[in-house]
Amino acid sequence: MNRIACAMGASLLAFTMSVSPAAAHPPIAAEQAAASFEQDRADILAMAGNFKVRFDMQESTRWDAAYTPLEAKVSGGNEIVRVVEDTGRRIVLQHLLVVNHEGKDMVIKHWRQDWDYEPAKVLVYADRNTWKWEDVPEKMRSGRWSQTVWQVDDSPRYGGWGQFETQGGVRRWRSSWTWRPLARRDAVRNPVYDRYYVINRHQNTPEGWVHWQDNTKMGIKDGKLVPIVQEYVLNTYTRFDGYNVKAADEYWAAVRAEWDRIASEKGGIGVAEEAATGTVISGRLMQLADDLHNGEVKLRDAIAGARKLITENTRKL
């Protein structure tokens, strides 16, 4: 790691040590946890289905007087959310974007969210190109769920833990404070900030659900990690069935399993990223999926190729 990266890591550590996310909520009694467990599961599973999605992003408050906030941006699309795993205490939801290009429906693999009940540890973003296992304080595990989010190639993006709560008659899951790498929409601009510090909320609505993010965009200034601008992101999922869906499920199941194996055996995940695509192997993993869909490669060869890419491009932490 070069001197700049080391300085950034030290600044991140110093900033992290100055906050106490566990103090935001008290421990949950075992009786209360047991009573809400099935409702928690129902709320997570309710995020599965077919949706029309609206992505609403706005940089609203600048913390650095020299920074000019971006104009608000609204986009959208069609998306399906599939339950690809449900063991009771673990639920995995895969998101797939569906677009129409020249009259043909196309499926574009999107993000994935893994929910684990009363986790002992969570894979979190630690610094550039690095995700590490972080212990959840033992007294804060009861009744809580972790959410780990993965990118289009099933490499890690961020993780955090939190709890379901009801306020003002609305039930939602609220995360601990979590670090995140830049989204592609920001990374390609090479901005003055290089990571986000975030509170993350999921809540069901009569028409679907919403994902609300309170993002503090952070950057290095005068050798210190400081806030640059505040961003508010509201992603609204409204149930909608007016499109077709298909995907190479077995291939992506094998890719997910390989990332999980690497995280376990190498003590986390160290993989290089680039602004335009995410991980440096994202394009090749997606190309294998396309080749499989088009019949240009057999399933076993696509899986073998994906495993080789992931193994050779990750490092032990």
Rank of each mutant, 00 (worst) to 15 (best):
L45Q: 10
V98K: 13
I44S: 06
E59H: 03
R90Q: 11
L93R: 00
V81H: 10
E79C: 13
W63K: 11
N50V: 14
E85D: 06
E71K: 08
I80L: 10
D86Y: 01
R54Y: 02
L97C: 12
Q58F: 02
N78D: 09
E59W: 00
V98M: 09
T68V: 10
H95T: 13
V107M: 10
M106A: 12
A46R: 07
V81W: 01
D86H: 06
A66H: 07
N50E: 12
W63M: 14
D56H: 06
K104G: 02
D86K: 05
S60Y: 12
E85Y: 07
R54Q: 04
A48L: 08
E85K: 15
A66L: 09
V84A: 10
F51S: 01
P69C: 03
R89Q: 09
N100E: 14
D64Y: 12
R62A: 14
D64L: 12
L70H: 03
A48D: 02
K73Q: 05
L97Q: 04
I91N: 02
Q58V: 03
V107E: 14
Q94C: 04
L96T: 09
D56K: 01
P69K: 00
E85P: 01
D43A: 04
A46G: 09
E79M: 12
N100Y: 07
K104I: 10
D43G: 01
I44M: 02
V107D: 12
A46C: 07
M106F: 14
